[in-house]
């Protein structure tokens, strides 16, 4: 029953594909960015769940002989979260700019406006 022990990957992939679907199938640009965020946090979850050790504890020094979870993925993801918010802010700024230029944030309507030109 080895495949049951990998359930963390199944949860992560479900979330990842949900975010991917939102990005691909929905036309509203704000919603696309929400989907992108879901995708992103599923990757965070992938790394953090890999770092978990059975019966381990948070990587802060306690008595000798304590089992710690792996601190290195935590550091990576800490950086990634902050960078992720920076990219989200940039994307939302682009959305606001598109709204000013086109008067809409729906992908289809933007295409319609570009067609006759």
């Amino acid at each position: 029953m080895d495949w049951l022990g990998q359930y963390n990957y199944y949860v992560v992939f479900f979330l990842m594909m949900t975010g991917f679907y939102v990005v691909v199938a929905r036309g509203n640009l704000v919603k696309k960015i929400v989907g992108l965020n879901i995708f992103q946090s599923s990757v965070f979850l992938l790394y953090i769940s890999m770092a978990k050790v059975e019966h381990g504890t948070a990587p802060i020094v306690l008595a000798d002989g304590t089992v710690y979870s792996n601190p290195l993925p935590h550091v990576l993801i800490l950086t990634a979260i902050v960078v992720g918010v920076a990219t989200t802010a940039l994307g939302l700024a682009l959305v606001v700019r598109i709204k000013e230029a086109y008067g809409t944030v729906e992908e289809d309507e933007i295409h319609d406006q570009d067609e006759p030109a």
Partner: peptide, 15 residues
């Protein structure tokens, strides 16, 4: 619950 206390903190504040 996955022992990543620092990450949880950042995610709650920033995310």
């Amino acid at each position: 619950t996955l022992d990543a206390v620092d990450v949880a903190f950042t995610e709650a504040a920033v995310g």
